[in-house]
Simulated scan of single mutants.
Amino acid sequence: MNKKEIPSTKIESIIKPKCNLFELVQYQCNIKDDRVVCSPFVRIFKRCSGKPTVEITPYYDDEGSPIEQKF
């Protein structure tokens, strides 16, 4: 068998695809008495070349601590 060396840059691009993070700000609004009160809610997305965009916004428990997601 004839072995060929693969340049390390080719391997790194397979292991670590180029990804970009995007942020989207939405608002959660509630009616209180005669007013509408809105709070911002930030959502975070990751887009890697050749793959679909995925939301990676962390989830938080009732005390505000992030919950680890298992994929």
Results as ranks from 00 to 15, higher is better:
Met1Ser: 14
Met1His: 15
Met1Trp: 13
Met1Gln: 13
Asn2Lys: 01
Asn2Arg: 00
Lys4Ile: 15
Lys4Met: 12
Glu5Gly: 01
Ile6Ser: 03
Pro7Leu: 01
Pro7Tyr: 00
Ser8Lys: 10
Ser8Leu: 11
Ser8Ala: 08
Ser8Gly: 10
Ser8Ile: 12
Thr9Glu: 09
Thr9Trp: 03
Thr9His: 07
Lys10Met: 05
Lys10Arg: 06
Lys10Pro: 02
Ile11His: 06
Ile11Gly: 02
Ile11Gln: 13
Ile11Met: 11
Ile11Trp: 12
Ile11Ser: 13
Ile11Asn: 07
Glu12Arg: 07
Glu12Lys: 08
Ser13Glu: 08
Ile15Cys: 05
Ile15Tyr: 04
Ile15Lys: 10
Ile15Ala: 10
Ile15Trp: 02
Lys16Val: 07
Lys16Tyr: 09
Lys16Cys: 08
Pro17Gly: 03
Pro17Lys: 02
Pro17Trp: 01
Pro17Leu: 04
Pro17Ser: 02
Lys18Ile: 14
Lys18Ala: 13
Cys19Lys: 10
Cys19Phe: 14
Cys19Tyr: 11
Asn20Met: 07
Asn20Leu: 07
Asn20Ser: 08
Asn20Lys: 04
Asn20Gly: 10
Asn20Arg: 04
Phe22Trp: 07
Phe22Gln: 15
Phe22Cys: 09
Glu23Lys: 08
Glu23Trp: 11
Glu23Cys: 06
Leu24Asp: 09
Val25Tyr: 06
Val25Cys: 07
Val25Met: 12
Gln26Pro: 01
Gln26Cys: 08
Tyr27Pro: 00
Tyr27Ser: 01
Tyr27Lys: 01
Gln28His: 08
Gln28Thr: 08
Cys29Ser: 06
Asn30Thr: 15
Ile31Gln: 07
Asp34Ile: 09
Asp34Trp: 03
Asp34Phe: 07
Arg35Thr: 03
Val36Tyr: 01
Val36Ser: 03
Cys38Trp: 01
Ser39Pro: 00
Ser39Thr: 04
Pro40Cys: 02
Phe41Ala: 10
Val42Thr: 10
Val42Cys: 03
Ile44Pro: 02
Ile44Phe: 01
Phe45Pro: 01
Phe45Ser: 03
Phe45Asp: 03
Lys46Tyr: 12
Lys46Asp: 15
Cys48Trp: 13
Cys48Leu: 12
Cys48Arg: 10
Gly50Glu: 09
Gly50Trp: 09
Gly50Gln: 10
Lys51Tyr: 05
Lys51Trp: 04
Lys51His: 10
Lys51Val: 05
Lys51Glu: 11
Pro52Val: 02
Pro52Ala: 05
Pro52Leu: 06
Thr53Lys: 00
Val54Cys: 10
Val54Asp: 15
Val54Gln: 13
Val54Met: 12
Glu55Thr: 05
Ile56Phe: 00
Ile56Leu: 02
Ile56Trp: 00
Thr57Ser: 11
Thr57Trp: 02
Thr57Gln: 01
Pro58Glu: 04
Pro58Gln: 09
Tyr59Asn: 14
Tyr60Glu: 11
Tyr60Asp: 12
Tyr60Asn: 14
Asp61Gln: 04
Asp61Asn: 11
Glu63Thr: 09
Glu63Arg: 09
Glu63His: 06
Gly64Cys: 10
Ser65Thr: 11
Ser65Gln: 14
Ser65His: 09
Ser65Ile: 11
Pro66Val: 06
Pro66Met: 08
Glu68Ser: 05
Glu68Trp: 02
Gln69Thr: 12
Gln69Asp: 13
Lys70Pro: 04
Lys70Val: 12
Phe71Ala: 12
